[in-house]
Write a protein that binds this DNA or RNA. Structure first.
Lengths: 347, 347
DNA sequence: GTGAAAGCGCTAACAA
DNA sequence: TTGTTAGCGCTTTCAC
C-alpha cells in the first residue's frame, strides 16, 4: 500500500525529518544506528522513513564522512570460472561487514586495467583487491599513491605493491613436472592459451619446463590457442598434436577445459589413458566432475584467496588492525592425480 | 619518476589549481572536457594533474552535479555462465559511454535482492537492470519509486515495472515439447534444478508440460536436484531415472550442463542417441561445444538481452531520448537440434 | 538525548 | 575564455 504518491525528486533526510518532527541530525543518527536516541524517537523516525520509502544518499553521506565502504575488486574476466570463485570468497568474508565489493573487469588488457582502476579509485574505495602482480607503471603508481590497502591476488611470484595472496604458479608448474616424471612419462607435449598477457599461465609453463629440465627432459611439442570453445579447442589441438608427434606419452594442458577436450578426443580414439598417454590440466574446476575420467589437475585455492584478501582489507579498515593478520600469503595448491596420471609402472 | 612524495591526504582540485595557477573551476572544466578552454591553459592543467597523480573525486562530483554515471545490474549468480554473458552484452554497449555497470548478486534470494537493490539505489544510479519479473513487494516499490529507468531482463512472461527485455520461457518450453513430439518421441522424462525461486526454469517446465498436454502426452518421470557439480548430477540422475523408468525415449533437462552429464552417461552405457533415447537441454552454452555429441538446446539470447537492456537505459539518460527505442522486447530463442533430437523416423 | 552550524570536494549558473 | 558564488545531502563537532 502506497502512503504517498511516488516522488519525482528523490527523498532527503529533510523529508523524513519533516514527516516525523525530529531534527535531521537525529534522523541521521537513527538511520545509522549511532549514538543514543530514545526508543520513542527511534520508532517514530523508522516508521516515517519506511512509510515514505526513504533511501539514504550514500553519495552525500560518503562525502561528509570521508568514508566509502566500497572495496574495488579488479579481475581479468568473468568468463573464466576462476574469478567468480574468488569473488565468492570475497563476498563470504564481507557479507556481514559494512564493506561492499565492487567488481571491475580488465579483459587481460593492461590499458583497460589502468582505466578501470582509475575509475574505481575516483570513488575513493576503502581498499583494492587486484589480480596479478604485473601492472603498467601508471597502475602501480596509482596503487602506491591511493593511500588505501591494496592486495594483489592469485600469484606470489613477484613483488607486491602492498599485500599479496596467492600461489606460486612457477612452483605449481614445477611440481606438476615432477609428478609426471615420477610416473615414468618422458615424451611430453604442452597445450595452452596464447599467453603474452596471462602471466600466471606463463609462469606455470616456465616452472613446468624448468622442472623437466632438471631431469634433463624437454617438451617435445607445444601448441597455443586463443578464443573459441575451450573444450572444442582441446579436442582439435590434441588431434593435431598427436598427428604431428605420435610418440608423445603425456599431455599437459594449461587449464582443465582444454584438458577435458583432449581427454574426450583420446577416449574417442580408444587410446589407453593413462597407460599409453597421461593427461593433466590446471584449476580443478568443479564443473568437470562427471567426465568419464577425472583429469589430473591442481587446484588454485580460488575461494581461499578471495577470503584471505578480503580479510586483509577488512583488518585494515577497523579501528585498530590486528598486527597478526599476515599480508603476504602463499597458499599451497593440492595436486589431484585423478584417473589420468597414475600409470601402472611398465617394468 | 615521482615529482612529489606520495600524498597522505588524497589530492583535491584545489591542489591542481594551486600547482598550475588556474582557478579550480577551469581545472574542473579541463578534466571533464567541458566548455571552452584555451589550449595553453588546458595543457598546463593536464600536465599539473598528471604530475601530481590527481584522481578526481566522483563522490563530490556526483553530489554537486546530481548525476551518477552508474547502472545497477542485479543478477542471481555469477556461477551460472548465463549471467556473465548478459554482463558482456551490457558492457559492450556501455563501453564507450559515460555509463558504468555495477553488479550486484542475489543468490536467487528475494530478501538478498531487496538488500542489494537498496544498497545500489543508495548510490543513486542512472538506471537499474534487474533479472526477472518476480520480486518482493518492497523491491517492486523501490523500483517504481526510484525515479530512474528500470529494465527487467531474461523473462517476458509477466508485467514489468517499467521496461523489459527477454524471452518467453513458457513458450520456449512449449516449443521444445512440440519439437520433441514432432520427432515421434512420446515417453518423456524431465530433470531440472529444484526451482522454487528460479522462475525462468519453472516457467519453462510449465510451458513444456503444457505443450505436451496439448498432444495428450504427460511427463512420465521427473527429478530435481540442487547443488553439486551439474555434470555429475546429470549423470547420476539420468542413471537413476532410467533404472526407475526404463521405457523412456526422451529426456528433457532444464539446462545444458546436466543434459551433458546425461549424455555422457548414456554414451557410457552404449545407448543409441537419438534413436533409442533423445535428449535436449537449454541455454546453448558455448562451453559444451566439443562434447562427443552436440546436445539439442535452445539459446536464451543472453548477450542480446544485455545489449538491449543497456541501450534502453542509455537512451533514457541522453538529452532527448529516441522515442523509437522500444521498451518491451521479446526475443525469439532459436532451437538447435544438435545430434540428439533428430530421430530417424521409425516406420 | 537532541539540535545548530559548518563544511566534505566538486559543479551549475552566472558574472566578468 | 575565465572566475565567483552558492549549494548538492549528508555527517562532524560542539552546544544545550
Amino acid at each position: 500500500m502506497q502512503l504517498t504518491t511516488p516522488p519525482k525528486r528523490p527523498l532527503t533526510l529533510r523529508d523524513v525529518s519533516d514527516a516525523c518532527g525530529v531534527s535531521e541530525m537525529t534522523v541521521s543518527r537513527v538511520l545509522r544506528k549511532r549514538g543514543d536516541v530514545s526508543d520513542a524517537t527511534r520508532d517514530r523516525v523508522l516508521a516515517a522513513a519506511k512509510a515514505l520509502g526513504y533511501v539514504p544518499n550514500q553519495i552525500a553521506g560518503s562525502l561528509a564522512s570521508q568514508r566509502v565502504n566500497l572495496v574495488a575488486v579488479i579481475i581479468p574476466s568473468l568468463g573464466n570460472m576462476v574469478f567468480p570463485e574468488v569473488l565468492n570468497g570475497v563476498n563470504q568474508v564481507l557479507e556481514d561487514t559494512p564493506l561492499q565489493p565492487v567488481v571491475g573487469v580488465t579483459d587481460y588488457l593492461p590499458e583497460k586495467e589502468e582505466r578501470v582502476l582509475y575509475e574505481m579509485l575516483s570513488w575513493r574505495p576503502s581498499g583494492v583487491i587486484i589480480a596479478g602482480l604485473e601492472h603498467s607503471e601508471a597502475t602501480r603508481a596509482m596503487l602506491r599513491n591511493a593511500g588505501i590497502p591494496v592486495v594483489e591476488i592469485m600469484d606470489t611470484d613477484g613483488k607486491p605493491v602492498d599485500a599479496m595472496v596467492g600461489i606460486s604458479h612457477r612452483r605449481a608448474g614445477r611440481e606438476m613436472a615432477q609428478a609426471i616424471l615420477r610416473e615414468g612419462y618422458e615424451r611430453i607435449g604442452f597445450m595452452g592459451t596464447k599467453m603474452p598477457l596471462d602471466h600466471r599461465a606463463r609462469k606455470r609453463f616456465e616452472g613446468f619446463t624448468e622442472g623437466l629440465a632438471k631431469a634433463g627432459v624437454e617438451i617435445e611439442d607445444r601448441a597455443f590457442y586463443s578464443g573459441g570453445s575451450a573444450l572444442a579447442k582441446g579436442r582439435e589441438m590434441t588431434r593435431e598434436m598427436l598427428e604431428r608427434s605420435p610418440d608423445l606419452d603425456f599431455l599437459y594442458y594449461s587449464n582443465d577445459m582444454i584438458g577435458a577436450g583432449g581427454l574426450l578426443h583420446l577416449l574417442d580414439e580408444g587410446i589407453d589413458i593413462p597407460g599409453q598417454i597421461g593427461l593433466a590440466g590446471f584449476n580443478n574446476v568443479e564443473l568437470l566432475q562427471g567426465l568419464p575420467r577425472q583429469l589430473a589437475t591442481m587446484d588454485a585455492c580460488r575461494n581461499e584467496i578471495g577470503q584471505a584478501a578480503a580479510r586483509i582489507i577488512l583488518n585494515q579498515t577497523i579501528p585498530d588492525p590486528d598486527p597478526d593478520v599476515p599480508t603476504q600469503i602463499t597458499l599451497t595448491p593440492t595436486l589431484s592425480l585423478g584417473d589420468t596420471l597414475r600409470r601402472r609402472r611398465q617394468g
